[in-house]
C-alpha cells in the first residue's frame, strides 16, 4: 500500500493538536524523514510537556511487536511518544495488529516513524492503521528550516523598514564603536545578523 499524501505540520502544532484531542486513548501518527525520527520524538516530548504540564513517556520498542505491546500496557494511563519502530518486520506489524485489543488504553499514543515504516504499518496492520488514519501528519525539518530562514528574513526586513536610515552595516559599525542607539530593537537586529557578541562590548 502506498503511503497517502499526508498534511504537513510543524511538530509544535502537532503537539498542540495532540494535547487538545478530547479522545482518551487516541492514536496519532507523525511521519518524518528517517533521520529525523529520534530528534522529532524528543521535540514532541518537550512540546507536550510544556502544554500538558507533565512529560509523556518516550518509548523505543526496538524489540519488535511484543515489546511494543508490553510498553503500551506498562504505561496504560500515560501519554506515550513511541519512536524506533522503523526496524519492525512484517511479522512485528502483524503481531501488533493481532494484539490490538491489548493496545486499547487510557493515555494517548503518538507514533513517530519514517515513511517506509508508515507504509508497512498501513499494509500489514490494517486495524491499527484505521486507528491512526484520521490523525496522521507529516513533518520535514528541511521545510521547517526554510520557514525559519524566511521568517528571519521577514523580521530583518521589518527592522530595516522601522529604521530606514540605517543599514545592517551601520548597525554593526555603531555597535563596534559603542554607539548603538538605545532602542531594544537594535539588540534584536544585531542578534539576527549573528553579531549579538557586540552587545555591551564597549
Amino acid at each position: 500500500m502506498e503511503l497517502p499524501a499526508l498534511p504537513p505540520v510543524d511538530p509544535a502544532e502537532f503537539a498542540l493538536r495532540v494535547a487538545a484531542r478530547p479522545d482518551p486513548g487516541a492514536w496519532s501518527l507523525l511521519v518524518v524523514p528517517i533521520d529525523e525520527v529520534a530528534p522529532t520524538a524528543i521535540d514532541l516530548v518537550r512540546e507536550i510537556e510544556t502544554l500538558e504540564g507533565h512529560a509523556p513517556v518516550l518509548v523505543s520498542p526496538r524489540g519488535g511487536g511484543a515489546r511494543f505491546v508490553a510498553e503500551v500496557e506498562r504505561y496504560a494511563s500515560e501519554t506515550i511518544v513511541a519512536a524506533g519502530v522503523d526496524g519492525f518486520t512484517r511479522d512485528d506489524w502483524e503481531e501488533l495488529d493481532l494484539a490490538r485489543s491489548r493496545l486499547l488504553r487510557e493515555g494517548e499514543v503518538v507514533v513517530v516513524l519514517g515513511p517506509d515504516a508508515a507504509a508497512e504499518l498501513l499494509r500489514r496492520a490494517p486495524h491499527l492503521a484505521s486507528w491512526v488514519s484520521s490523525f496522521a501528519w507529516t513533518s520535514n525539518a528541511e521545510a521547517l528550516r526554510a520557514e525559519h530562514e524566511r521568517r528571519k528574513a521577514e523580521r530583518l526586513a521589518d527592522l530595516r523598514a522601522w529604521a530606514p536610515s540605517m543599514t545592517d552595516d551601520d548597525v554593526v559599525r555603531l555597535a563596534e564603536q559603542g554607539r548603538i542607539p538605545g532602542e531594544p530593537e537594535y539588540a534584536e537586529w544585531l542578534v539576527l545578523l549573528g553579531r549579538g557578541d557586540l552587545l555591551g562590548s564597549r
Binding site: A12, L16, T50, R151, A187, V191, L192
Partner: peptide, 24 residues
C-alpha cells in the same frame, strides 16, 4: 492557541542554547 504560537519567533527547536539570543 496555535495562532498565538505561530506568532512567536523563533520556534522552540530553532532557539539557540547559548550566546545572545533574541525572541519575540
Amino acid at each position: 492557541p496555535w495562532d498565538v504560537q505561530k506568532l512567536l519567533f523563533p520556534r522552540a527547536r530553532d532557539l539557540p542554547q547559548s550566546g545572545r539570543i533574541s525572541l519575540g
